[in-house]
């Protein structure tokens, strides 16, 4: 474990917590893409499937973190699609998730480190995570604005994989560890946030709201 990966995981936890708090406190999921949250839930379940297969006692933080990610993302989907369904902005959350899932699944079958079920699921989860935020960014571009709390959520969510890139540089240099598939997908994922990062740093930090087109 290194400082970049530690802060990356903390940033990821923060993002999940910020979104849960926003929906729970405001009792509304306006401005939140339910599709992105569904895709994240699929990512966690397919990536941490080992938790369900050979359940090992919760002997380390990693197992606990995996369970937190899975349960928090499923609970977020429950809040969006059931509890606060009336506030779900289905009209603007209109990006076709199939256009993200099918290519990720196809690519996972073509480019992977080992052609076995667990590895293909892990690879699918990595590819899907890289594009899972697109419905959320699409929704913001359709509504033309983002609530400040949602901007903080997006900043934490984007920072997590950006920090993981630093972690991969660190591990390459000190541990000669390379996980090419995760690195390439992580770079693509972070690039997708660049536009938002620019708006966040030039606007939200100064107390303004993000309004599109900028």
């Amino acid at each position: 474990m290194n400082i970049f990966r530690l802060f990356g995981d903390l940033s990821h936890l923060a993002a999940i917590a910020i979104l849960l708090l926003k929906i729970w406190k405001t009792r509304s999921c306006a401005g939140v893409s339910g599709k992105t949250q569904l895709l994240f839930a699929v990512c966690f379940i397919t990536r941490y499937i080992d938790l369900f297969l050979h359940f090992v006692s919760l002997y380390n933080t990693e197992k606990v973190m995996k369970l937190i990610y899975i349960s928090a993302s499923v609970f977020t989907c429950y809040l969006i699609f059931f509890k606060f369904k009336a506030t779900y902005d289905g009209n603007h959350d209109s990006m076709r998730a199939e256009f993200l899932i099918v290519p990720a699944a196809g690519l996972a079958c073509l480019i992977n480190t080992k052609f076995d079920a667990i590895e293909i699921l892990w690879t699918f989860s990595i590819y899907l995570e890289a594009v899972a935020i697109l419905p959320q960014l699409f929704l913001i571009s359709k509504t033309g604005e983002a609530e400040t709390i949602t901007s903080h959520y997006l900043f934490a969510q984007g920072s997590y994989r950006a920090l993981y890139i630093l972690n991969w540089i660190y591990r390459y240099h000190y541990e000669s560890h390379v996980d090419t598939i995760a690195i390439v997908a992580g770079v693509v994922q972070t690039i997708l946030y660049c536009d938002f990062f620019y708006l966040y740093i030039t606007k939200v930090v100064k107390g303004q709201k993000i309004v599109l087109p900028a």
Binding site: H12, K66, K114, E119, W122, S176, H177
Partner: peptide
Amino acid sequence: KLHEGQHDEL
């Protein structure tokens, strides 16, 4: 060194 395909990150 991790054996092939083992991923030790979240």
